[in-house]
Design a binder for these strands. Structure first.
Lengths: 242, 242
DNA sequence: CGCACTATTGATGTATTTCAAGCCAAGTGG
DNA sequence: CCACTTGGCTTGAAATACATCAATAGTGCG
């Protein structure tokens, strides 16, 4: 069940910069494995010294940090095409963990080849940097939420952001998408308690801008959600995929 | 008053990877200007399409985002040696603003040469990526604070983080350093109100772990601060400087 | 059946915001 | 030199958003 980059069904989507056969071959040479992990699997652990670099091929995942007393903060969610583990690869020690939300497939990009890659294929190095910068932009936005938005606005901003990203990837059908998040995940991503998240979700559901239930997100009025959340950033696309 | 990289007093500090004359010459070729800006100057504006890439040479600065109704979130503080503007340079549009906290000096690294740089000097490209990853790690930590730490813990975590960074740079003398932040900046960085920040600072001052007053931060007990804040990350050093 | 996980709801407590006011030092224009 | 403003810091009181505690219910699963 190995997926060859030359036959990758993901990279041909319009969300991504289309690459020449030559470039794809370079990436394929870098890719050393194609992993399948079950939901819940932690593929980067905090403090891990040999964490690898991955491209999420299918499914959802998240990065998180936690305090020693157990409080957990989800830093950002990753969707197919996202690069995970760049910090960990470069620093030689991971400052965060990464966990699969669904069953996932990962393309393994051995970090020991990362330096070499920059040497040999600078264009790819540039794209790695681009993806790293994009990852930071997601965290920036989440920090704005946690720091300055109220609970309902935070949830709306999360919905708007995820919806826009899913749409770019073609995961939206009839204004709806699979959302493999429990309310606990939402709470952990937004810096809220589980109970307050639940109550705020109920209130938002009553407003009919969107609703989350049974693992699905239905957005009835994206404009309304965006306005309420003051979330106006479009997803960055087309973007490189490695 | 142009500062040549070959004579750069900053890069020779132990915080930074020491470079060969050849490498320094490459950076010097990239650097196109040396700017001096007064405190308060905004050198990257949100939405700006032609923002440049900078290395902060002297002084302090910060990146921020804001909501249209005026609520502002400081994303991270930048100290000498930090790279600012990588996202903006790569995306062709800035998703944040950057402002000088003190009078500052900036090394201007023209972004139009960035792609070329990766081609010609992959080692430098790698270091740019490294610095981008480090920048994300700072935001990650701030998100953990805003999402999961209480007000006093947030302030302590900010103090611990800034102190450790300043120490790495040799800015600490007798446990104290110049801290050019108003309480409003601290509030904006931590997602707190000004009033609550002020009261929490007073309470922390009474605990004598550290104190902030008259533009100086004095840390009496770094261990105690770190333990209270549950902040255990050391500053990443030595690190590249470009 | 019992267990684990998720969603839900009410009651209560607390952290934080907002409002309002005053103080001090530094700068500015008369 | 004074009146006046401005920015930063401080404090008390009231309001509110959010957290915590506690209990229930549905679902899938061994």
């Amino acid at each position: 069940m190995y997926v060859r980059c030359a036959a990758c069904p993901l990279r041909v989507r319009p969300a991504f910069v289309q690459k020449s056969d030559e470039e794809v071959a370079l990436i394929e040479a870098w890719k050393s494995d194609h992993l399948r992990l079950p939901a819940g699997a932690e593929f980067i652990r905090p403090e891990q010294t040999d964490a690898e670099l991955f491209t999420l091929f299918s499914g959802w995942a998240f990065r998180y940090k936690e305090l020693i007393d157990g409080r957990r903060q989800i830093l950002n969610f990753a969707l197919p095409g996202d690069l995970i583990g760049l910090q960990s690869s470069m620093f030689g020690k991971s400052l965060y963990g990464a966990v699969a939300l669904t069953d996932i497939e990962l393309c393994l990009l051995p970090r020991r080849k990362l330096g070499n890659l920059f040497e040999r294929y600078p264009e790819l190095g540039y794209e790695v940097t681009w993806l790293g910068a994009r990852s930071e932009s997601l965290v920036d936005e989440n920090l704005l939420s946690a720091g300055r938005r109220g609970a309902a606005e935070r949830i709306a901003a999360l919905v708007a952001g995820l919806y826009k990203r899913a749409e770019t990837l073609g995961l939206v059908e009839d204004g709806a998408l699979e959302l493999p998040l429990t309310q606990q995940h939402i709470a952990d991503a937004l810096g809220l308690s589980l109970v307050h998240t639940n109550k705020t979700l109920a209130r938002l559901r009553a407003q009919k801008l969107f609703s989350i239930s049974e693992g699905r997100l239905v957005v009835h009025n994206l404009r309304g959600v965006s306005r309420f959340a003051q979330h106006f950033e479009d997803d960055l696309a087309p973007r490189p995929m490695i």
